[in-house]
């Protein structure tokens, strides 16, 4: 990768990323969203984040692996249960990460 290519990649990524985040804010006074749209937005974070992490959790080497020797699955399951039970983000993350590494160590 040349320096020019590097600059173009970063510039291009910046333009689209910032453009997405800023376009509604830029015309904030004129943005009028219908009520139903507002209600649907509540479901955005849970849907987007689930869609990002589901393949990481369940897929190993291009196939679904739901078993106790998949550290991703075990760690995620533990985090999920703790998150539902205690609703404490730090605890959720800690328990998930510990579970993940325990299985990773035991499996290797």
């Amino acid at each position: 990768m040349t320096i020019l290519e590097g600059v173009l990649i970063i510039l291009g990524m910046f333009v689209v990323t910032f453009g997405i985040r800023f376009c509604l804010y830029a015309r904030a006074h004129k943005v009028v969203l219908p009520q139903w749209f507002d209600e649907a937005l509540v479901f955005v974070p849970i849907s987007v984040l689930s869609a990002i992490i589901a393949p990481m959790i369940f897929m190993q080497d291009d196939r679904v692996n739901i078993s106790l020797d998949n550290p991703w699955f075990v760690g995620a399951l533990l985090a999920f249960v703790v998150g539902l039970w205690r609703q404490n983000q730090l605890l959720t993350i800690a328990v998930g990460v510990i579970g993940f590494y325990l299985v990773k160590l035991l499996a290797s």
Binding site: I46, S50, I53, W72, F80, G83, Q87, I93, G96, V97
Partner: peptide, 10 residues
């Protein structure tokens, strides 16, 4: 993954 689960569960 763990962070996103922490965001989702509430």
């Amino acid at each position: 993954v763990a962070t996103f689960i922490g965001i989702i569960t509430p």
